[in-house]
């Protein structure tokens, strides 16, 4: 049963598209397009959950897929867009690392995660694809947090990392117990809300959400 799911072309396709959407985030210079790409990524993730649920016959995975679709692909992007609009932030991302180098670093991270996963003996080939994709998502999310100045991008980075963990969990264990998943969703939502409020506060205090300016808080 499991093998059938994991060797199916559609799973591979979804995972590859998730990776591609991550690179879309890395490669765009506009906040809106980043948020859109994140929305697409979450939508694809929901599809993954749905496919796994369909082939394993677990009902709770459908619920997880539905929740992903609602919360990550709709509500969170909406919150982002709301924040961007409300604080009238400049729509361009300011970077520490340029777009082309970022993309190259992203590619290197994918290769590194692949070799990392390969060194751990994993069960099947496809789950190794899914696992290395999830690992890459986590590392690229972290990289986005490091290399982008705007606080919104730090939020987005965390969410990408969370998506990566979700992908890993679903492909390894076919989803955690529903209760845990619900907890995580709740967590993520609250985190986004809190971070959103925080961004408002930062903006109010510093007139910018450039996290570079937080340095002035020292001493």
């Amino acid at each position: 049963m499991e093998e059938i799911v994991f060797n199916s072309g559609i799973m591979q396709l979804l995972i590859a598209l998730i990776l591609a959407s991550t690179f879309l985030i890395l490669g765009s210079t506009r906040l809106y397009s980043c948020v859109k790409a994140f929305g697409i990524q979450s939508f694809l993730l929901a599809c993954v959950a749905w496919v796994v649920g369909f082939s394993t016959g677990k009902i709770d995975l459908y619920i997880v897929a539905f929740l992903t679709l609602i919360i990550k692909a709709a509500v969170i992007p909406y919150i982002f867009i709301y924040i961007i609009r409300e604080i009238k932030v400049k729509r361009e991302i300011e970077l520490y690392v340029g777009i082309s180098p970022s993309l190259i670093i992203g590619g290197v991270l994918v290769v590194i995660s692949y070799y990392l996963i390969r060194s751990i003996a994993v069960i099947t080939e496809l789950s190794s694809f899914a696992l290395s994709a999830s690992m890459s998502l986590v590392s690229i999310g972290l990289f986005i947090m490091i290399s982008r100045k705007k606080a919104i991008m730090q939020m987005l980075g965390i969410l990408i990392m969370e998506n990566g963990l979700f992908l890993g969990a679903i492909s390894l264990t076919h989803g955690m117990p529903l209760l845990v998943e619900l907890g995580i969703f709740f967590d993520v939502l609250i985190a986004v809300l809190i971070m959103g409020i925080l961004i408002f506060r930062i903006n109010k205090t510093f007139e910018t959400i450039d996290t570079d300016k937080l340095k002035t808080l020292i001493g």
Binding site: F23, L24, G27, I99, S100, L103, G106, G107
Partner: peptide, 8 residues
């Protein structure tokens, strides 16, 4: 940048 997206 566009072309490095293609490259990636």
């Amino acid at each position: 940048d566009l072309l490095s997206i293609s490259l990636m």
